[in-house]
Design a protein around this nucleic acid. Structure first.
Length: 262
DNA sequence: GCGACAG
DNA sequence: ATCTTGTCGC
């Protein structure tokens, strides 16, 4: 019957990406982005979805807001959610964005004064098959400046994980060093950044929305205590596990007590 | 058949 | 994403 069930879905998603792609702003739009020390920047956000071992449907959506430049936690939101869309490489946003957007809107409604001035996203932005990764998607739909940070290189648009790439990585001497990820077209889609002196493996930074590549790279570097930028690290590690555990208990206990009804 | 495949 | 312990090094 339907040998290729996702084919039609993928086509719709592709046109949706093409439509929203036109809304991406690839330049700095905020005053603090022009400042050498980012003066005026007080809150940076991070978002992430955490999963449990064999369950790719239930996840914990998290949003944290940290102070800048101290990187202290100002706000934290964790919400168990039920995912509907499958994970297909190149379409991560359709799986995760709705829940990340929900978290941002909850904050906007309850404590708008804590809204982050920029959001770090776990995944790529412009560095994407169609130049519209998760960070762009969330940026356009939320209207907030966003930065995409991926932990692994996506081989796309003529960028390969070959010997040339490896030698460029080897040339990154200290935290803050970077090299461009240039598409076959010549466009710089992002940069590989050595985020700290300690980590030899770079992170891949690309813009999501309302920020320039160079500003995104500079900002990412100042938000790194370890390899992964603190906003993303905090959103991954803070309350994720405990929220998932309490959620597991909440669905396990009622079912066991129901055995008393018979 | 083999490699790639953000999270 | 997550599965998994120890291990080597500063």
């Amino acid at each position: 019957m339907s040998a290729a069930p996702a084919e039609d879905l993928v086509k719709r998603w592709e046109s949706e990406q093409a439509r929203l792609r036109q809304e991406v702003v690839e330049e700095d739009t905020e005053d603090w982005q022009r400042s050498a020390d980012f003066s005026g920047l007080e809150r940076v956000g991070g978002v992430d979805l955490s999963f449990i071992k064999g369950d790719d449907v239930n996840a914990c959506a998290q949003l944290v807001v940290l102070s800048y430049p101290d990187l202290e936690v100002l706000y934290e939101d964790s919400q168990m959610v039920t995912l509907t869309a499958p994970y297909i490489a190149g379409f991560l946003a359709f799986r995760e964005t709705p829940f990340l957007l929900d978290a941002i809107q909850r904050l906007e409604k309850n404590q708008p004064e804590l809204l982050p001035q920029v959001v770090f996203v776990d995944g790529n932005g412009l560095f994407h098959y169609r130049e519209f990764g998760l960070a762009c998607h969330l940026g356009v739909l939320s209207g907030l400046p966003c930065v995409g940070v991926a932990k692994n290189l996506l081989q796309v648009q003529g960028v390969y994980k070959n010997d040339e790439h490896q030698s460029q990585i080897a040339a990154l001497q200290k935290g803050g060093d970077s090299f461009p990820l240039t598409a076959a077209s010549g466009k710089v889609l992002g940069k590989a950044l050595r985020s700290s002196d300690k980590s030899s493996k770079p992170v891949y930074v690309s813009i999501g929305h309302k920020i320039s590549v160079d500003t995104a790279v500079r900002l990412t570097h100042t938000c790194c205590r370890y390899r992964v930028p603190e906003p993303i690290r905090q959103s991954c590690a803070s309350s994720g596990p405990s929220v998932i555990i309490s959620w597991l208990k909440s669905i396990t206990l009622p079912s066991s007590s129901s055995s008393f009804t018979h």
